[in-house]
Design a protein around this nucleic acid. Structure first.
Lengths: 226, 226, 226, 226
DNA sequence: CATGAATGAGTATTCATTCAT
DNA sequence: TATGAATGAATACTCATTCAT
């Protein structure tokens, strides 16, 4: 079993990717363990994204993480729970950052554009975007992952969008009142962009930023030139 | 080895699912083979959708199709090419039907609504919707499938949408001229609906038809009451 | 899963050891399968006896049986149930033969000596004797095996012994009336002989036949010279 | 490496089980080590009895003994030699006690009954009885254990029994002169009782004491009423 | 001495693929 | 053609053993 209290915290600090690791401080026992755990998470994410859950070999994860196969089992109960925990560990900090909205100064469109900018930078075309596609892919076989993702990401995102939309309607920036019933519409092009980058980028690159601007023009009924 | 010329045609005629099989009058050799092939395709689709490519067992496909395991290899070279052919066989007739647009009478909005209605009926919440999710899931591991899907479905769909959008702009029904550069926006909510039904229906059902109407209201800048 | 009806019967006919296989008749499908199953049982018995349950490798069983590893799983669900079925398949015919008593002519001592002679020939110093030791060894970890062995062998053997003892008492051949309460005493030296042969034969060989005669002399209070 | 001279002596003093440990007054280095070693031996015996050699995990032994896994290797070279030493450490004091016969006063039957009484108390239905079954179980894979057991327990026990039997014959208490050639007969029911308790107690409890009395009645040709 | 994280060889089990019938 | 028994490579997971702290 994983020893959550200590390691989870450390791993969370190390976050999801070696590129984000700060300089390693005092290399004590707990720190080493956290680093290894982070390396496993990072490696597992790469492999799962590249091959999907079933086709990913723990051998490859271990090799990529630079640990022995057995070491994985010091941190995760089995392949399934590794996948589930991995999604949590990688998703949570992203959600935290995305939902930390800037103070509501300026227009609603500015707020939404700030939000979309974050999304563009943090998700689209990144490993995390691929992770979203992975969740779409494996969700049906991992109800716990789908549940977690709905609860932590989707429902919160929808709620946040709805609040912004209602604010926009109240302030007269948004004319389409029914939009508040379907905040999914607001995010749909962004989600499509995520999937598009994963699947079709080499066939036809997509300027996600510009597409989102056009979509917001539709919603706000005006023209922006960025 | 699969004997493509003969069987592929037959299977294509039998299309994608036993429920669509017409009565087989003369039960000659070729017809029997086509029926079996169709049964395998149908069964394989169900299994692949339910478990994904890697986790699906040929044993289960064979059992579901009511044939012996070895029989599958009389129709398909191996599991991979079965998956690839399956996508082709199932997708092609759908595309054919979806792209058979009604004659361009009435407004562009009517045209698009007709198109969306077809999509709702034929895809969202159906096996074929699940197949779309499956393609999103397995695309990265099956470039040939992603290529095929892009070529046969996505690029055509985008082109068709673009044509409609340009017509709408020309006729003054659509004000947002940049929309023609991103026809993906038009389909984005429909795609989201497809994925939503697969993953989150039990958490929060989504009225796809109504959502699409709202989205069209945004684009056409008017209100419709269904 | 094993397909009991057909195969079990065939395997039962082939019994527990190639040395007992009759000439192979028409080598049809079912017969081939039964032969393989018998070969696996035979090989498994050898390996389990030599190494115990946990230390036995299915690889070795397969190699010894001359089949591929996967073939074992066509006949047995897993290692545990292979062990359990193996005990049944090997034990049952022995019990059948041992409990087929000769007609009760002559003295009770003659009857018991006939029984003991069978036991000596069929069990002590044979593979089946080793199997008894194996059951003693693995019984605690295989309650189902211990249960089966108690039900099919021990309780029947005890009952048969008790009947004979009571007959001996009734006829005045046996003076110790309390012996009927502990038929185990009658078999104890035979069991010890079984275990002795497995463990200490090379330290000090034991003439089981003579020992049993002495033991019967004790019980019947007379002298026999074989 | 184990440092036999020192530790073996200490462990031997600590004997077989923490419940037998006297209060440790001066808790110096050597004493602490001996206590740990005794704890490991005790824990190992429990685990080996419960699961057999191969299926026992050093992790479980360490946990039960309250030491770290690595500590085991400070006392024993490896799992195999731990098992071998364990048998020695546990068996030796039992033999010592059992072979410390009371002074030969009274009849031979009294002597044998005293011996049997000891055996009943010290072995049957106790951990040590289970250990006997364990030796029977693992003997074939641990020739050194079987050798040791034969040399230290079986051959001594047989010799002691033979001496008693010959004394009984000389004194006219035992009529069956051939019994001296098979002292195993004398102990057979006791051994059966040991195994019976391990395997079949829950199916049919066995009054070992009464059974032994009946057996002695057979040998001494008289009736005793406990 | 004592620890327990890390290792990696070892094993049960699965499943795509073949081929004799 | 169709079958399904047989195969054996592939893979998740375990656990005795080591060694840095």
């Amino acid at each position: 079993m994983t020893k959550k209290p200590t390691k989870a915290a450390a791993a969370s600090a190390a976050q999801a990717g070696s590129q984000m690791l700060e300089a390693a401080p005092a290399s004590n026992r707990a720190t080493r363990a956290a680093e290894r755990r982070a390396a496993i998470v990072e490696a597992a994410m790469e492999e799962f994204i590249a091959r999907g859950f079933a086709a990913t070999r723990l051998d490859d994860i271990a090799r990529r993480a630079g640990v022995a196969k057995g070491t994985i089992y010091l941190h995760f109960k089995d392949k399934e729970s590794m996948f589930e925990e991995l999604v949590r560990v990688v998703i949570v900090p992203v959600v935290a950052r995305l939902t930390t909205l800037p103070p509501p100064v300026g227009s609603v469109r500015d707020l939404i554009e700030a939000f979309a900018g974050n999304f563009l930078k943090e998700v689209i075309g990144t490993r995390r975007g691929d992770l979203v596609r992975l969740i779409v892919a494996e969700g049906p076989r991992f109800p716990s992952v789908a549940d977690f993702y709905y609860r932590e990401v989707v429902s919160r995102g929808v709620a946040a969008m709805r609040a912004l939309i209602e604010l926009g309607i109240a302030r007269g920036e948004i004319r389409e009142k029914d939009l508040a019933r379907y905040p999914q519409i607001l995010i749909a092009p962004a989600m499509i962009a995520v999937i598009w980058q994963s699947l079709f980028e080499r066939h036809a690159p997509l300027d996600a930023r510009d597409m989102l601007r056009v979509h917001l023009d539709l919603i706000f009924g005006e023209r922006r030139t960025t």
